[in-house]
Design a protein around this nucleic acid. Sequence first.
DNA 1: ACGATGTGGTTGACGTGTCAATCAGGAGGG
DNA 2: CCCTCCTGATTGACACGTCAACCACATCGT
Lengths: 161, 161
Amino acid sequence: MTESTDERRSVFPTVEELRVWRDFIETAEALRSNLTSRLQSESALSPGDYAVLLALSEADGHRLRSSELAAGIGWERSRLSHHLGRMERRGLVRRQNCAADNRGAEVVLTAEGAEAFRRASIPHLRAVRELFIDALTPEQLTMVDEIAGALRAHLGAPRDL
Amino acid sequence: MTESTDERRSVFPTVEELRVWRDFIETAEALRSNLTSRLQSESALSPGDYAVLLALSEADGHRLRSSELAAGIGWERSRLSHHLGRMERRGLVRRQNCAADNRGAEVVLTAEGAEAFRRASIPHLRAVRELFIDALTPEQLTMVDEIAGALRAHLGAPRDL
DNA sequence: ACGATGTGGTTGACGTGTCAATCAGGAGGG
DNA sequence: CCCTCCTGATTGACACGTCAACCACATCGT
């Protein structure tokens, strides 16, 4: 099932496959960077800021335990800690000790942070629409979904080893 | 052509469209980071290192003007300069003055750099095959190509403004 | 009660990326 | 020739990410 007799070369991508791979990864990167710079110039927020503010905005009482926040947006704790430090300096969030667990920290959305998020979200959603959704037919969008699913499934289960 | 009468809401993505967008961008990111860590552990090279070494390997005389190299891999000169500094410290490349233009610099692949690239390329190509090509049917791969093309075309020409 | 072990979170070092400023050398017009 | 302007490349400041080390508190077994 893995390799039949005359399939030595098939372990490596063909030139064409490699081209598609590069196109794919570079396109994703170009999209990301374009969205990032729009967000930056329109609202002075990074995608990281946006993710944090979004999670806090949706949270009960606009506050979250640090580790829950990290889990919610899929970040390592260290990354979050660094990022919160930067956001706190800018007044977007505040950290305070957690009553229930003395080692814990609670991250609280400030009024300023909520305001920044509000200003950012509309243009950001519009940008996603313009740069991604509008570029594709509905059928293509369905295929994107399918393809992303296939890639993730394969990533999670590196079969054939 | 832009907006017909009852299409106010269509400026923003639907919940479903937003989900597909997030899946797409997160999948691309997961792929990238997986490939990166493989490359790192197998050959102690970053994707940036790999791109630079690949370009130099293919270059005539294993050497390139700094700005040609930057153009070839699509980097800003500043970024390249920083990266070359780090690579030079590790002995992967050397910089020398350009005879033809005294402000210019030529980047030269060292034996060590060539060797590092040789060791890295096979496992890297295999990884691309395993993580990307093998995850998709040939039809899906064709769709990826098409979709990437559509996205790039749309990015380059932000119509409707 | 106390020591081992685990968990929440922070920190420092370092690679990476962007932006703006800088600097040196080429190129053209007076 | 000299002054201006352009261009190739570097630099510094800073944001961001990862990794490993660390610290304080919690937990659990005895």
